[in-house]
Amino acid sequence: MSLFKLFLIFTKIGAILLGGGYVILPILTDELCEKRKLLTNEELVDYFALSQSLPGIIAANISMFAGYKLNGIKGAITAVIGVTFIPFWTIVFLASFLDRLVNNNFVQSAMWGVGIAVIALITLTIREIWQKSDKDKFFYFIFILSLVSMLYFELSPIQTIIIFSVIGILIKRSVKKA
């Protein structure tokens, strides 16, 4: 894929990245997996977890992983420039209206709606990943334990990823030896 086209795709993704970074996963799934068939759903899900385990902005990290897969180092750099392009210029142009914009009722109500859309989009993504994964005992075991650790024991995502990656690898190893 040409770098220019890659840039355009990620610029579009950055432009609709409303309501926080998590919405990038539904948007990327739609844009790269379904419309263009450039990546598989599974690859994106891996990138999502890896992006959470690395420092920095998740939306930028996952774009760089996807960009790297599509066009190597140049692809990663192009993707991150693309995804930050519109957000960057929006702030530059809106900085002087910050006060008025944030306190505008109309804008606030519209953004409440966007917040709900983000919940719906994330729910749909979970459903999709769920349908497309091979759910063996191992999958359920890791899924339930890591969910419980976050919801009840309030482990952070990064703690959860590290602990359960180690547990997962140890299980796989003992299964292989047996």
Partner: peptide, 15 residues
């Protein structure tokens, strides 16, 4: 293969 169920759990807890 371990990251998949963990990702599902992460997203579920976000939702």
């Amino acid at each position: 293969s371990t990251l998949k169920p963990i990702s599902c759990a992460l997203l579920t807890s976000v939702a």
